[in-house]
Design a protein around this nucleic acid. Structure first.
Lengths: 342, 342
DNA sequence: GTGAAAGCGCTAACAG
DNA sequence: CTGTTAGCGCTTTCAC
């Protein structure tokens, strides 16, 4: 037996001795169909568990009720939470999500994007890969008035709506806390130089250094524990006076904590550490990690709402409204930093 | 300007003064088309960045090149890794993934499943929600010969291929290590009673208890740190003699560790703890968590390969081959357990 | 109220 | 080698 094709409207129509269009009308509820006919149809629909073929509908309506989401990674609870937020709203509005991971690779990202468009998604939510330089394709999407919104990884040149985090202020708050808790030599384990968010956090740090009259000490590092471990070791060897570390991400903070401990120094007494993102497990580290939390779920929901809005607009006229929503971070004080000095 | 429709074959055909079918043939490469015509067509295809409408192709071929994946959760690195594995193989074979999270809710799961089928996915990979009791829909899919495979959360009654983990042996190995490292009173913080994997791990524990002549001490717990913290506190109050805890998951282990520490006991000297799953951060806990790792990525890849195979079969005859692939776990010894006594 | 007919974008026979 | 034709499953005029 080959794969059984699913039931079509024609099957129902034949069984009932009516036409396909009558069945279609009955199911839609619109148009005039006699109550009797509708009842008969609906009964059979229930019985056979019939659902109209979305592909055929899409072809006709030029809508697929499917949305694309491209994020750098999924094994990070940050984007996981963002997707959960997106999903909440998408689900309520009858949309399905095709989720792709770019793995921070712009080649993969481009291919994902094309494949998604190719699958006739009605819209996109995208967190740019950190390596993405070439925006030609995204520009062409914009030019074609294809609805998409950027999340977390922003870009002002594209002229599309964005849902972002105020990384600069977050970076400032993190750095400030370190100084306010008595640290005198605060270093920054910054993220990749090409990543806008990382750069913003770094700028926040530098601003605070200036305010406190401290000469910035920045080391760049990838977003993983191993690299961070190495870099921190080097940093502390070269600068044993460092007594506070602002890590650009919780994963970097974890590596830093490991390194600090391996040197026999204690946290936060000898070296205070603060992270960024508040990953799910950060509160279970020892000491529990002080960090900056981002409202990932809210951001996902917002992005999805904005996308819905954008899709509505692009159906009508070219309103071309590119809004920018910037979420504030929250300082989560735990035990990897000292008490604030009054 | 309303949303610009994308380019169709007809647009290319018109521009070139040829027929649509000629364009189609030229693009496919199959059939006979003169080299000159093909060249002209391809040039325009490049220029306009044309991609055939997948919906239309699907409608015709009754294939969508889209697959559905339903997992309980995404903010857990276990299913994240599984998806990464699935994605690897799917991507290589030109398939897109629609990923849904059931949030362990069988109602949501059913609705996801229906929506996916409705979107004409060519196949499914599913990790059953722990609450799923009613298998009617899945049985009907199976009856209709719709290709799908089960991952991690197995079920033998469905008669479909499965990619699983040997949770029983994993549970045995975890429990055994505790006894072998000198623990005399090994308790088990088991997972939800309805979850097959948890039950298997529990059975493994009980088997080992029998081997070591110990009376099993089991406490059931949800897969989260807070509940585990409470349960562990209660357990240790009631049974202060407990000197080893086998937690059914790393998240449960984390809560247990917190509770043990809060009682002023040290790990592993006073109480040894072992988890299950080897989450990304488990090695960064203090002490680093001894645990049982599952080859999630490999499982994802395997499931996708099996699905590919199943889809091929269902196109041909009803081969109906339901294989079961059981992966072995690996014991990862870190610092939350003591040295093995020779 | 109902059905016939056209068509969404594409592919696959079949003529020519 | 190329074009005509029919049709995938569905919706939507437009007659009747």
């Amino acid at each position: 037996m080959a794969k059984s094709k699913s039931i079509r409207m024609k099957d129902i129509a034949d069984r009932l001795g009516v036409s396909v269009s009558t069945v279609s009308k009955a199911i839609k509820g619109s148009y005039d169909v006699s109550a009797k006919t509708r009842e008969k149809v609906m009964k059979l629909v229930e019985e056979l568990d019939f659902e109209p073929n979305k592909q055929a509908q899409s072809l006709l309506q030029n809508k697929s009720y499917t949305l694309g989401v491209v994020v750098p990674d999924l094994d990070n609870s940050f984007f996981g939470s963002i997707i959960r937020g997106i999903e909440n709203i998408a689900y309520q509005n009858g949309y399905n999500l095709i989720i792709c991971q770019s793995h921070e690779d712009s080649v993969r990202e481009l291919s994902d994007l094309k494949s998604l468009i190719n699958h006739q998604v009605d819209g996109l939510i995208l967190a740019l890969a950190s390596s993405t330089k070439d925006l030609k394709y995204l520009e062409s999407l914009k030019a074609r008035n294809f609805p998409y919104v950027l999340i977390d990884r922003g870009n002002d040149d594209l002229g599309v709506s964005q849902v972002l985090v105020d990384d600069f202020t977050g970076g400032m708050n993190a750095s400030k806390l370190l100084f306010e808790t008595g640290c005198l030599n605060v270093a920054h384990l910054a993220g990749p130089e090409k990543l806008i968010n990382a750069t913003e956090r770094e700028e926040g740090y530098k601003q605070v250094c200036e305010d406190f009259g401290f000469d910035p000490l920045v080391v760049h590092c990838e977003f993983n524990e191993e690299k961070s471990f190495e870099k921190t070791l080097q940093l502390l060897q070269k600068h044993p006076e460092v007594d506070g570390i602002f890590a650009a991400s919780d994963r970097i903070a974890v590596g830093a904590m490991q390194a600090v401990k391996s040197l026999g120094k204690s946290i936060p007494e000898d070296v205070s550490v603060i992270g960024f993102s508040d990953l799910a497990y950060s509160k279970y580290l020892e000491p529990a990690l002080t960090t900056i939390s981002q409202p990932a779920g809210d951001m996902g929901e917002k992005a999805m709402k904005v996308l819905l809005e954008t899709m509505k607009q692009s159906e009508d006229e070219n309103v071309n409204l590119a809004e920018k929503f910037v979420y504030q971070t929250k300082l989560i004080i735990r035990n990897s930093t000292k008490e604030i000095i009054q």
